[in-house]
């Protein structure tokens, strides 16, 4: 797939060789907005915590030690493996993965539906998908909270219809957090998939049907491989921000159980005031994400090499 893209891109002679001076803005942006903050956090994660927030410029591994070892309430017991943060990470990864899966299950048919409409109605559907996202994420999360609370419209409606006898407790549960994540990031799934389905040539489906492929075969053997890059892009765009989300866990989950995002937020903004630990947790998260993306990129490269 990558090979194909590269070859289509390299065709144009007018734009092909990008001169170094033209790259300067790119490097400035990457350097200033990407590399510099990450390096700063990396440095902070190895500094000594200052009492009540801030750092002392002395090298220390205390932040990583705190992440890995449990030394008891007073910090002087023999170290044991600290499961807390591992549990928080695993919980966050599972929630982000489920959110991604839900977005995919709803997002793919939605994108497919939109892409198969007439060009005039497509833009209307796309517009409708993005309309709620013109509203601030905080407001949307709060309104979700109003919808699902014990005596909110959802429970009232279900009770009115006689489906349930008494309100289901939805608010302050993992389910609510899941719902919030799904709702927050759905368009990030729909839009990239739409972009790739839209370019899909439906003559291919017809050709497959002529060769006696049934609908499922067409989906698995023809459509999915071709729109795969869009699906991957959508999954990454949903998974990564879900992993660091803190609004949904705070507002819908009752701020009771940390997720990665709220754990890190608490280190900088909350009572804990432990900057090096917040930086270390971010670094560990970043490393995990980079490793996962790296492995994926390697596998893709090997696959396209094999295909060639």
């Amino acid at each position: 797939m990558a090979g194909e893209l590269a070859s289509t891109r390299a065709v144009s002679r007018t734009f092909a060789p990008v001169r170094t001076p033209l790259l300067i803005p790119t490097w400035v942006i990457i350097g200033f907005f990407l590399v510099a903050p990450v390096l700063m956090m990396l440095a902070y994660s190895f500094l000594t915590k200052e009492f009540r927030g801030g750092v002392i410029w002395e090298f220390s591994l205390a932040a990583y030690d705190q992440f890995i070892f449990d030394r008891g309430l007073f910090g002087d017991e023999p170290p044991q493996i600290e499961w807390t943060y591992i549990v928080i990470f695993v919980r966050s990864i599972i929630q982000a993965a489920v959110a991604t899966l839900l977005c995919l299950i709803i997002g793919f048919p939605t994108a497919y539906f939109i892409a198969t409409r007439s060009p005039a109605t497509r833009s209307m559907w796309l517009f409708l998908v993005t309309v709620p996202y013109w509203v601030n994420l905080l407001i949307r999360t709060v309104s979700m909270k109003f919808l699902i609370r014990d005596n909110g419209p959802l429970n009232e409606a279900l009770m009115g219809l006689g489906v349930i006898g008494e309100p289901i407790a939805l608010i302050n549960t993992d389910f609510a957090v899941q719902l919030g994540l799904f709702y927050s990031y759905l368009p990030f799934m729909v839009l990239p998939i739409y972009a790739s389905v839209e370019r899909y040539d439906f003559a291919l489906s017809e050709a497959a049907a002529d060769l006696y492929a049934n609908r499922w075969t067409i989906l698995y053997k023809v459509i999915l491989p071709i729109v795969w890059p869009g699906i991957v892009a959508g999954c990454i765009l949903v998974f990564v921000p879900s992993l660091g989300a803190f609004l949904a866990p705070d507002l819908l989950g009752g701020a009771k159980n940390f997720l990665i995002g709220s754990l890190i937020e608490e280190q900088f903004k909350g009572n804990a005031g432990n900057w090096p630990f917040g930086a270390a947790a971010s670094m560990i998260l970043l490393s995990l994400v980079l490793i996962a993306l790296f492995i994926y990129a390697r596998r893709q490269a090997r696959r396209s090499a094999q295909a060639a």
């Binding site: 309430l73 807390t84 943060y85 159980n257 940390f258 754990l263 608490e266 804990a272």
Partner: peptide, 9 residues
Amino acid sequence: DTMWTRLKK
């Protein structure tokens, strides 16, 4: 602070 972190985790 340690107690608070343990409480909220």
